[in-house]
């Protein structure tokens, strides 16, 4: 099934990507090609096959509940595009 431009636009909002009309056009074409390509997975009979999310035979990995030093606040904020020495700052967010 082909993705429409509207669907691609919806996905772009979910992914928080602004696409220009040209980019949307190209993205729609390319995504459709890739989706069409991956559709060949349908050929594989996967009846009764368990999905493999992890290639690992490992379970129950925990750490002890111990406090270790956090970053100095200055360090934590150092890479932030906008901060006031206490908080990260963002455009106003309405609740």
């Amino acid at each position: 099934m082909a993705l429409t431009k509207e669907e691609v636009e919806k996905v772009a909002l979910l992914a928080r990507l602004r696409l220009s009309p040209d980019e949307l056009e190209l993205m729609t074409t390319q995504l459709n090609k890739i989706v069409e390509y991956v559709e060949q997975l349908r050929e594989v009979d996967t009846t009764d096959v368990e999905p493999l999310a992890h290639p690992l035979p490992v379970t129950n990995v925990f750490r002890r509940d111990e406090v270790r030093p956090s970053l100095p606040r200055e360090e934590a904020l150092r890479n932030a595009p906008d901060h006031d020495d206490e908080f990260f700052l963002v455009p106003p967010v309405l609740e």
Partner: peptide, 24 residues
């Protein structure tokens, strides 16, 4: 975009889950 689409409602099973089964 592709990954967001593959995980989005209605496509998860057809794409993501299917791919994990093929992975096995």
């Amino acid at each position: 975009m592709l990954g967001t689409y593959a995980l989005s409602a209605g496509y998860y099973e057809a794409y993501y889950l299917k791919a994990l089964k093929v992975r096995r």
